[in-house]
Amino acid sequence: MTATAAALTIDQLGVVYGSHIALDDVSLQVRPGEIFGVLGPNGAGKSTLLRAITGKLRPTSGQILIAEKALSPGKAYQHSIGFAPQFLGLYRYLTGRENLEFFARCTGVSRYQVPARVSQALEEIELTDKAHVRVDQMSGGMQRRLHLAATLVSHPSLLVLDEPTAGVDQGVRMSIHALIRRRAEQGAAVVIVTHELDEAEALCHRVALLHQGRLKALAEPQTLVQETFGNSQLFVVRTAHMLPPALQERLQEIGFHRDSDESSEWWLQSDLPLDMLIDHLYRGLGGARDAIAEVSVRRPGLKDVMQHFTGARTDSAAEPVS
């Protein structure tokens, strides 16, 4: 592979299940050392894309290249691909070290290199002192880190991570972020699927937004926000209680939106100064201005880009575990 070659190339990829189009003409590239986020609401095609990248399904059309070589379905290990699915794939009655030794051998690490690779992985995830603890006796955060280490132990050049911080607390999340950044700095390409859009905005160099199987946008997070909203701000209004239908219609006539019928938060994209927006809002509500509990202004983010392209900001997050 040349110095400028892509670690992953997806060219006009299509996947069809019967009459359902799961992926439709998706093309993108991921560079060595890049952290690349794949975003989208449920049913967007993210899981199908990951299965195709990791050789777990054969696309209907198009092709996937790993380091300029055509991917062989079912033989991801031959292409130096490391895949960490969302759900933990550890052996509960083995220790942390035993799990990593097993996965190292399964992914082709020489038996002479296994001890050093396992020790390095345990040190990276800060579990050296827990190496001989059985998985079923570890906390959820420890299990999540060990699950990631099982992917890293073979030193793959392409990491594919599905919700790598699902259900963990903030401390574990930051530790996992640091580990992902280190591997990218060492030259690995990293593809991450996440519903945590704030995480994607902070961690990823570029993101791709999928919706109904199609690639809707691809850019650096801040570039995507700028291209979508320009210099506009979001004027956010939180109501004190659920508004009657007549007041809801007034807000909609002014141009406000909300994420669901149950939400008490309404938002409006605008370039106008805050005082002008408040005056516009109060004139629209007339004598019902006491229904407004809070007014604020903020810059748009990836959540708002998601809303713009798909009508959905994000899916519900898992409950944190320690």
Rank of each mutant, 00 (worst) to 15 (best):
G213W: 01
G230L: 09
Q248M: 14
Q233H: 15
T239E: 08
G230D: 12
T239F: 14
E185M: 15
L234C: 06
L215T: 00
R214Y: 00
H205P: 08
E196K: 04
V193Q: 03
E185L: 12
A189Y: 00
V225K: 02
Q226V: 06
P221R: 05
V193R: 02
A246C: 07
L251K: 04
A188M: 05
A208C: 13
A200H: 04
Q186E: 14
H241W: 09
G187L: 04
A208P: 03
T228I: 09
R181L: 08
Q226H: 10
S232W: 03
R238D: 12
P245D: 09
H205K: 07
M242S: 14
H205F: 10
E199V: 13
Q252L: 08
Q248P: 01
E220G: 11
V237T: 09
R183S: 08
S232N: 13
V207H: 01
H205Y: 06
E199S: 08
Q252I: 11
Q233N: 14
A219R: 13
Q212H: 12
T239L: 12
V207F: 04
A184M: 04
R250K: 15
Q248I: 15
G187W: 00
T228F: 10
T194I: 08
T223N: 11
V190P: 04
H195L: 06
G213R: 05
A219T: 00
E220S: 13
G230R: 07
N231K: 15
A240E: 06
R214A: 15
R214P: 00
K216A: 12
V190T: 06
E196Q: 11
L243W: 07
G187C: 14
Q212M: 05
E199A: 09
P244L: 08
L179Y: 10
V236D: 07
L251A: 15
L179K: 06
R183D: 02
I180T: 05
T239M: 13
L218Q: 10
F229R: 07
I192Y: 03
